[in-house]
Amino acid sequence: MSHQSIRVALFVPCYVDQFYPQVGKAALQLLEKCGCTVDYPDEQTCCGQPLANSGMEQAAKPIYHHFVETFGSYDYIVVPSASCAYHVSHHYDVIEQTEVVKKVRESIYDITAFLTDVLHIESLGARFPHKVGIHQSCHGLRGLQLARSTEQMIDPYSKWEHLLHMVSDLELVQLERPDECCGFGGTFAVAEEAVSAKMGKDRVRDHLNSGAEFITSGDMSCLMHMEGLIRRNKWPIQVKHLVEILNTDG
């Protein structure tokens, strides 16, 4: 399928840019594999969520304006982070709603939803012969509704599972608590250090008990938090962003 007529801007969240460049590369390559013409606007910085979640959205407004200026001319803005996509689409309501602001809020997509809902990907040619547990990030799950949460009494669906089912030899494990938060929560991770670390530990333990070799998620921030615990405790499990798995060779 060719989507070359669609101009896609890749937004690489600040912490991914700095600590997980391989996730940015995988997202770029994956979008190109799917036939998109992808640009990486050099002026990009951050969506402003770290400030806003701490109560400082007034102080984040210059970041919002910078974001809109950087990404305003593209058909789609795609980001390998449900959390950033959620923030731009839901919380940029505090700046003046000009045409371009409205357009940016509507055209930003978490890469999972972009692959399933815009590109309608049905096959990938990826292979990952491992047992994998999905960490359903809360902003992806309940914020962007990428899957049904256990609270909702509706028919189950999952855009993450839909994509991972296309990966050869990958085995998804069953978790005891499929949608418990990992405890990252941005500045929560340090402000509420004890609860945050305990939540992360419980989350990783669930994946370990299920026999998973890898934890995957659409949000690297959750994985960064859990990876920090995994490495400190030398637990036999690794983390990988969803796009790293989807971008493997078949």
Partner: peptide, 18 residues
């Protein structure tokens, strides 16, 4: 507080932007 019970992420040679 991050590093009390967690490792900091390993720092790669270059950022995505680079």
């Amino acid at each position: 507080a991050w590093a009390k019970k967690r490792e900091l992420p390993e720092v790669p040679g270059e950022s995505f932007r680079d």
